Simulated assay, not measured.
Amino acid sequence: MTERFDCHYCKESLFGKKYILREENAYCVKCYESLYSNTCEECKKPIACDNKDLSYKDRHWHEACFHCFQCKRSLADKPFAAKDDQLLCTDCYSNEYSSKCQSCKKTIIPGTRKMEYKGNSWHETCFICHRCQQPIGTKSFIPKDNENYCVPCYEKQFAMHCVQCKKAITTGGVTYHDQPWHKECFLCTGCKIPLTGQRFTSRDEFAYCLDCFSNLYAKKCAACANPITGLGGTKYISFEERQWHNDCFNCKKCSISLVGRGFLTERDDILCPECGKNL
């Protein structure tokens, strides 16, 4: 007795008929298409077994229905892009959605390398230095007057050069006597510490920190022998080519302050009138 060979679903005999195996079960073409065929996204009809089923992200099309949403050209075996669930050929996608190169004004094809800066886009080969006309690529650049410059060209054309080291100043810097300096090059003439951010003074056009200036040039108090800088509102008394800090200008004997009062001198000593009258 011959063993039966029936459709797993409708039970009709499959002898002499075309059938399809699925998970070791045989189906007639009609049942298989009814149960398992995908529906075409374009025409909404089932994709028959003898038709090619093209899929993208769990969506399916007949080969003839797999075309560009705008120009209707077939996308089978061709590159394409998707936008809002619509499939577009690269030409239509570029014309509709791709950014335009700021330099050549042509479309930047999706997937090609591009440069972006402040909302504008360039082909990689169009993003060039305004001075040397070479592509900047991934190198650093400096914008000026709506143009972009590679760092060497910017330094040659625009940057000031430090009076001390003669190199270009690209960021920050200090101006002293109308001349530019790097912050790290603007140092005390005496001790060589950086002067940026602290008080300093000058002599013969050379800059000094307050300590060096006081030690080198300030006159010494006749009483305490410490420098009298006169900086920052420091008050002092001057008499016969000698100077005193206000706080040091006291009677030699009784130590009373003589600031704003009369005084007498005995040799190099300063005395109040009371102490002086006993001399």
Score class of each variant (00 low, 15 high):
58 D>R: 07
62 H>R: 11
40 C>V: 03
65 C>D: 14
62 H>I: 05
66 F>G: 01
43 C>K: 02
42 E>N: 15
44 K>A: 07
67 H>S: 15
51 N>W: 15
59 R>Y: 03
52 K>H: 05
54 L>Y: 01
65 C>S: 08
54 L>H: 01
67 H>D: 13
62 H>Q: 02
43 C>D: 08
43 C>Y: 00
69 F>K: 00
40 C>I: 00
67 H>W: 09
58 D>A: 10
72 K>N: 06
64 A>I: 12
48 A>Y: 13
52 K>M: 14
39 T>R: 04
73 R>L: 12
64 A>Q: 12
39 T>F: 09
41 E>V: 00
50 D>Q: 12
59 R>E: 04
50 D>M: 13
52 K>C: 14
71 C>E: 13
39 T>D: 11
67 H>Q: 12
49 C>S: 10
62 H>D: 03
70 Q>W: 03
49 C>G: 09
66 F>S: 05
47 I>P: 02
72 K>P: 06
41 E>G: 07
45 K>P: 05
71 C>W: 12
64 A>L: 03
60 H>R: 01
64 A>C: 09
41 E>W: 01
68 C>W: 01
62 H>A: 02
44 K>M: 07
48 A>I: 03
53 D>T: 02
46 P>S: 03
61 W>D: 08
56 Y>V: 11
44 K>S: 14
63 E>F: 04
55 S>M: 10
46 P>W: 13
57 K>V: 06
69 F>Y: 08
45 K>A: 10
58 D>M: 00
39 T>V: 09
46 P>H: 03
70 Q>M: 07
58 D>L: 08
40 C>M: 06
41 E>K: 06
72 K>Q: 11
62 H>C: 06
66 F>P: 01
54 L>F: 03
49 C>Q: 11
43 C>A: 04
59 R>L: 11
48 A>M: 07
54 L>W: 06
39 T>A: 08
72 K>A: 08
43 C>E: 02
49 C>A: 15
40 C>R: 08
71 C>H: 02
44 K>L: 05
73 R>H: 12
46 P>L: 07
47 I>M: 05
46 P>E: 04
47 I>L: 11
40 C>A: 01
70 Q>P: 03
64 A>H: 13
59 R>C: 00
60 H>Q: 06
48 A>R: 10
49 C>W: 15
56 Y>G: 06
44 K>N: 07
56 Y>Q: 10
42 E>C: 08
52 K>P: 05
56 Y>F: 01
68 C>H: 02
52 K>T: 14
43 C>V: 06
72 K>D: 03
41 E>Q: 15
52 K>N: 14
48 A>Q: 14
53 D>G: 00
40 C>L: 06
39 T>I: 11
52 K>A: 15
54 L>C: 04
43 C>P: 09
60 H>W: 04
51 N>E: 15
54 L>R: 00
63 E>V: 05
47 I>G: 07
60 H>L: 01
69 F>M: 05
56 Y>P: 05
51 N>I: 10
64 A>Y: 13
44 K>I: 09
67 H>P: 10
41 E>Y: 12
41 E>F: 03
53 D>K: 01
68 C>S: 01
46 P>I: 10
41 E>M: 00
61 W>C: 00
58 D>V: 05
46 P>A: 00
42 E>I: 02
62 H>Y: 06
70 Q>H: 04
49 C>H: 11
53 D>H: 07
69 F>G: 04
50 D>F: 08
